[in-house]
Design a protein around this nucleic acid. Structure first.
Length: 270
DNA sequence: CGTATTCCCTGCACGC
DNA sequence: TGCGTGCAGGGAATAC
């Protein structure tokens, strides 16, 4: 699930339950996800108070006085706040037990996610080269236009490059390029300033809207069962190969770019 | 430096 | 029913 809206939805979902809580313990059920989980965390975290729950790009940061838990959900990760009594499932890799008696539990079948540590006075290497937040003040069409000059890579790859702009994944890039009328296969350096203005607006609008839709799942956040695909029925092109374009009726095309599926309308996107 | 490819891992839908 | 294949929303590592 997790592109930026899903991560932000997770942040908002867990924040009321974990902010200000004392960490009682960290239970690791396996020593590694994508990378080894620093083993000092089981000693460092107990007794600390959670001071903030932040998001940077697709990372969640849970702040304590000596530093922050750095959490990425990868492609299949999720965090859930549970009241005691739920047995751990197969892919429940760690539990953070809180003073309230509740537990913050991480589940990730594919283990592409990570749990790392960022000391209070440092910026983790993984966060060092990230581009601007798409919903922040510095992100706009002129920024994309300037950065893209001379680039031959497809505009889709350019927009998914986390050093260009963060948080845009395979689904939302397809939707934003559709809304802006740009084919994902165009060279990034050949897209006009006006078109980048449109795509920047589309990215902001779609991500912000998806976050509000994610809000509908917040009410169910404490439930241990899976959340519904809240945004799925509103997608214009993603996953709709051969289905009629909602604007012009022509069949949506699916192509493979750098080993991942791209979707676009051959009539609406030039 | 930028670009393209490969790989990490498990689960699931599909065809035979 | 079982087995093989391809695919999945991320992104780092590697090879040019």
């Amino acid at each position: 699930m997790p592109e930026l809206p899903e991560v932000e939805t997770t942040r908002r979902g867990i924040e009321p339950h974990v902010l200000g809580q004392r960490i009682e313990s960290l239970l690791l059920r396996r020593p590694d996800l994508r990378w080894p989980i620093p083993d000092h965390l089981v000693r460092t975290l107990p007794g600390r108070e959670i001071e903030a729950v932040r998001r940077r790009a697709k990372y969640l940061l849970i702040d304590t006085e000596p530093g922050s838990m750095l959490i990425h959900l990868g492609m299949s990760g999720s965090l859930r706040v549970l009241t005691p009594g739920f047995g751990a499932g197969k892919h429940d890799h760690y539990d953070l037990a809180l003073g309230s008696g509740q537990v913050l539990r991480y589940n990730d079948p594919r283990r592409f996610g990570c749990l790392l540590w960022q000391a209070a006075d440092e910026t983790h290497e993984l966060l060092a080269a990230l581009g601007p937040e798409p919903l922040g003040d510095t992100f706009d069409g002129d920024y994309l236009y300037s950065l893209s000059r001379g680039r031959s890579a497809p505009v889709k790859a350019f927009l998914m490059d986390q050093s260009v702009v963060v948080g845009v994944g395979n689904i939302y890039v397809a939707e934003a390029l559709f809304e802006a009328g740009i084919r994902p296969t165009r060279a990034a350096g050949k897209v006009s300033r006006a078109a980048y203005g449109a795509v920047a607006m589309a990215i902001r609008r779609i991500l912000a809207y998806a976050i509000t839709r994610g809000g509908t799942t917040l009410r169910d956040f404490l439930k241990p069962d899976g959340e519904p695909g809240y945004f799925e029925q509103e997608l214009s092109v993603y996953g709709r190969a051969e289905e009629p374009c909602r604007v012009c009726g022509k069949p949506i095309k699916q192509v493979v770019q750098s080993n991942r599926s791209s979707f676009y309308c051959p009539s609406c996107q030039k």
